[in-house]
């Protein structure tokens, strides 16, 4: 089919519009964060300030609680991602490789948990964690986030395991590999993209979570980034430069992990060996 040049130009323009729309808010965040305070209001709607500075970043890193928030978020999101990935790998492997009686019920349970409103769980979870001393603690957050993310991650891991032909494990058995060797040398390398994707997914989700963090944490010492930023915003709602600098910092880990997932979104490693 011939593609008409007018249509091609329209197509490219539409794509450009989407790219601009997607990136503009992030660009603005960056722009304000490097605008010196004295130019903030006079050059409010300029696309790029006449002078840039990293003072806001320096201030946020040196004089605010944000390094603590950042550290807390890193601990919570990291621990959640690792824990979820381990649990989801085990459960996903069971769902992918075994036929057992309770399988149907486990899948149903996990599907239902995706349906119900998490706001409904706020109060009961608070009541349950409070006597255990798990409110206002990073451990409590990790436990809650892990539970919330396990169902989806399990389905994700299951689909990755489904993509690995059973023949490969049998070939490894015949080659004399123990279960552990087969897992480490065959299954694990082939599932690595899946594990990376799951880690990235869960990390981003835990890094972003706001409601439960607000509910379960009070006090700066164990605040995560979203809570810290929100508290900061409601207290000093005029220090835009600093807030946006903090926002850019919050964006970095999430975007890094997104790029990691993006690479593995479509994965054709096994396809080549299986298809003729």
């Amino acid at each position: 089919m011939k593609s008409k040049p007018v249509l091609t130009i329209l197509h490219r323009l539409a794509i450009l519009a989407y790219v601009v729309f997607a990136l503009f808010p992030l660009f603005w965040l960056l722009k304000v964060s490097v605008t010196p305070n004295d130019l903030l209001y006079s050059e409010g709607v300029r696309m790029w300030p006449s002078r840039t500075s990293f003072d806001h970043y320096a201030f946020v890193i040196a004089h605010s609680a944000f390094p603590t928030f950042f550290k807390n978020s890193l601990i919570v999101a990291g621990s959640t991602a690792v824990t979820v990935t381990i649990l989801a790998s085990l459960a996903g492997y069971a769902l992918s490789r075994f036929n057992f009686k309770a399988k149907y019920w486990i899948v149903a349970l996990m599907l239902i948990t995706q349906m119900f409103p998490l706001v409904m769980l706020v109060a009961p979870i608070f009541k349950m964690l409070s006597p255990l001393g798990l409110t206002n603690s990073l451990t409590g957050l990790v436990i809650v986030y892990t539970a919330f993310n396990v169902p989806f991650a399990t389905f994700l891991m299951q689909s990755f395991f489904d993509g690995i032909p059973k023949d490969l494990e049998e070939a490894a058995m015949i080659d004399g590999a123990t279960q552990f060797v087969a897992f480490r040398q065959i299954i694990l390398p082939l599932t690595l993209p899946g594990i990376a994707a799951t880690l990235g997914f869960v990390f981003t989700a835990a890094w972003s979570e706001l409601l439960f963090a607000l509910m379960l944490i009070s006090g700066n010492d164990s605040s995560t980034f979203p809570v810290g930023l929100l508290t900061f915003v409601s207290k000093f709602s005029v220090d835009f430069g600093q807030m946006m600098a903090a926002g850019v910092l919050a964006l970095i880990p999430a975007c890094l992990f997104f790029l990691l997932i993006q690479r593995y979104l479509v994965q054709g490693l096994t396809a080549g060996a299986v298809k003729g």
Partner: peptide
């Protein structure tokens, strides 16, 4: 007796080659 100790080798319909290993590594594995 586990498969590896039966003194057998098997060729699968799907070949079952380890996709992340080179030809040499596939043959060396056992």
């Amino acid at each position: 007796v586990p498969p590896a100790q039966r003194g057998i080798a098997m060729v699968f319909q799907s070949y079952a080659l380890y996709p992340h290993m080179t030809v040499r590594q596939n043959m060396e594995f056992a």
